[in-house]
């Protein structure tokens, strides 16, 4: 009898119903005390902070423990913020469910950065999206807080965003991809492939990521490209950020 076992003190004067500390915890306050600095994000099953010069950083990337979710599985939650400010909300509140048949799962209404029109790609377990038009005829809402966005180089009207911890069906590994039929972005994951970014380093990490704390973690994300052509000659677009190739 789970709730019968609960006992505690009602905190007098804790504010309106549902807004007290207990409620705040329930709504997903999930502090990350090991964070370094204020620029951190979940990356797959891992967590990274970007803090140049911090002890233990590799090219400015620090691997930190990813705190457990308020309850349930990590994938059930969508978290943002760093340190004591980190909060989580149920992922199901803002995106469609995965519908699975055998080894194939489809998400009819995948998470997108905001109410613009987007085309997206799933690269190494990271979702990268490019906006190609504002959405017309409705009241726009708050952007999804898990995406990091910026303007494409030389195209200030065009935005590109990256999500290092996108929705995935439970139980890795999955190989996910976006279908970008106009107006109908959907996401399909098939069983197989390798774990998403944030995985253990193994033999090597992909271009644009480094091995920190035995995790493949992305270099600092300042989204500014969709393809290599958006970058300066010789540079390459990796995880939506132009980067100089290793010499």
């Amino acid at each position: 009898m789970a709730w019968l076992a609960l006992a505690g003190c009602r905190e007098a004067g804790s504010g309106p119903a549902g807004t007290g500390p207990a409620a705040a915890r329930a709504r997903g306050a999930a502090p990350a005390p090991a964070d370094v600095g204020s620029d951190c994000a979940d990356v797959g099953a891992a967590r990274a902070c970007w803090s140049e010069g911090s002890p233990g950083s590799v090219l400015g990337v620090v691997a930190v423990p990813r705190p457990p979710p308020p309850h349930g599985a990590p994938g059930d939650w969508r978290c943002r913020g760093a340190g004591a400010e980190r909060t989580c909300a149920p992922a199901a509140e803002s995106a469609g469910p995965f519908e699975c048949a055998g080894d194939r799962c489809t998400q009819r209404f995948p998470r997108l950065p905001d109410d613009h029109e987007w085309e997206c790609a799933d690269v190494d377990g990271v979702v990268i999206c490019r906006s190609w038009s504002a959405g017309a005829g409705f009241v726009p809402g708050r952007p999804d807080s898990g995406y990091r966005c910026g303007a494409v180089r030389g195209e200030p009207e065009e935005r590109v965003c990256v999500d290092f911890a996108p929705d995935r069906p439970p139980g890795e590994p999955w190989d996910c991809s976006f279908g970008n039929e106009p107006g109908t972005p959907s996401r399909t994951c098939v069983r197989g492939g390798r774990e998403p970014l944030g995985r253990r380093c193994g033999s090597a990490c992909p271009f644009g990521a480094v091995c920190a704390g035995d995790r493949c973690l992305p270099l600092a994300a300042r989204p500014d490209c969709w393809t290599d052509r958006d970058c300066a000659p010789g540079a390459r677009c990796a995880f939506a950020t132009c980067r100089e190739p290793p010499r």
């Binding site: 609960l6 006992a7 505690g8 003190c9 009602r10 905190e11 549902g18 207990a22 409620a23 915890r25 329930a26 709504r27 997903g28 309850h71 349930g72 994938g75 059930d76 909300a89 149920p90 992922a91 199901a92 509140e93 469910p97 995965f98 519908e99 699975c100 799962c105 069906p169 439970p170």
Partner: peptide, 15 residues
């Protein structure tokens, strides 16, 4: 259909 937990207000209020 894999449903994610939508419950928000499970306050365990133990202090």
């Amino acid at each position: 259909r894999i449903r994610r937990l939508g419950a928000l207000s499970v306050a365990l209020g133990v202090a």
